[in-house]
């Protein structure tokens, strides 16, 4: 009597080969995605680095493919360095504001929302996260325009002069909200907010309810419970969210281009340098800046133990 079925063809024979060499199948599966990401993505990143060490011939405008640190040195020129400082300041402000606005939503969704409400909150955050970026930015162009809804509402309630006073603040003010840093800031917060809410909610959901009760039982008031129990426990989520809000702000160039003053952010500098100016090496060097800043940010976050609880 037989104790094994006969092999029925190529499929069975291949199954036998995969069985006797399980690593072969794993290798075959991983090869296409690995090749794609390795060649297209890592290859491009390498090209970016390479370009950033090239320079441009100032007279002919042609890229000189020779190793130099000259291009990086140009980043330190005041006009370029200002761009970096401006972008990092904006990223920090946006991150802090996102934390403040996201917290009530995340806390409510994690602790109080149940059943239908939970699903509603989830969709309520997920849909804005995924819906068209450009449409969201456009919506704010409509809101913040000089003749738009904000001005109309402010005048409607007799607060037109308040708006005027806000816009008169030096540096962050401007001709209208849509051409001021305040506008840029508002739109950044709006667009990146879901990226803060989701990890924050996930972190808060891991906090056992009994811990909050214990704190209250020990006589800690609401604010104390918040500061000494909830906040430390939510911190991993806040850090995770801040990685998104910070890095996305660093790299964006559409929002400040459409809503903001004419002064450049890093993204705009990269875009215009590679395009009209044709200075790809300097554009590449500028693009390396967010990478370096994010690497430092991640290293600090790791040192603070932000990833232990992730």
């Amino acid at each position: 009597m037989d104790s094994a079925h006969p092999s029925r063809g190529v499929a069975d024979r291949l199954t036998g080969v995969f069985w006797s060499r399980p690593k072969l199948l794993t290798a075959l599966l991983i090869a296409p995605p690995l090749l794609w990401l390795g060649v297209v993505y890592v290859g491009s990143l390498a090209a970016l680095l390479l370009q950033s060490f090239y320079s441009i011939d100032e007279f002919s405008g042609v890229v000189v493919p020779e190793f130099t640190l000259k291009t990086y040195a140009e980043l330190l020129r005041p006009s370029n360095f200002d761009v970096i400082v401006r972008t990092v300041t904006m990223a920090a402000a946006v991150t802090l504001a996102s934390v403040a606005v996201a917290f009530p939503i995340a806390f409510f969704a994690a602790r109080y929302a149940r059943g239908r409400w939970k699903a509603l909150f989830y969709l309520g955050v997920m849909l804005p996260l995924w819906s068209s970026y450009l449409v969201k930015v456009y919506a704010w162009k409509l809101i913040l325009a000089k003749e738009g809804i904000v001005t109309w509402a402010a005048e409607g309630i007799g607060a037109g002069n308040v708006l005027g006073a806000v816009l008169a603040i030096p540096v962050i003010g401007g001709n209208s909200l849509s051409t001021s840093y305040i506008g840029t800031f508002l739109v950044f917060v709006y667009v990146w907010l879901p990226y803060m809410i989701l990890p924050m909610q996930a972190a808060l959901e891991r906090v056992p309810g009994s811990l909050l009760e214990a704190s209250a039982d020990l006589g800690a008031g609401g604010w104390r419970t918040f500061r000494s129990v909830i906040l430390p426990l939510a911190l991993p989520g806040i850090i995770a969210g801040s990685i998104f809000t910070f890095s996305l702000t660093l790299g964006d160039y559409i929002i400040p281009q459409i809503i903001g003053s004419s002064r450049f952010f890093i993204g705009q500098a990269v875009y215009s340098l590679q395009g009209t100016a044709g200075n790809i090496p300097l554009a590449a060097a500028f693009a390396v800046v967010p990478i370096v800043i994010m690497l430092i940010y991640l290293a600090v976050a790791r040192k603070m133990g932000a990833f232990d609880a992730l």
């Binding site: 009597m1 104790s3 094994a4 079925h5 069975d12 199954t15 036998g16 069985w19 006797s20």
Partner: peptide, 26 residues
């Protein structure tokens, strides 16, 4: 057949299973 011996051999009704994957075992 979901594991393979590191050393030694397994027989089923006298037949060595060294080259027989799970889907062909009785």
């Amino acid at each position: 057949g979901f594991e393979k011996p590191t050393t030694g051999s397994i027989r089923i009704f006298g037949e060595d299973m060294g080259d027989v994957p799970p889907n062909r075992r009785h």
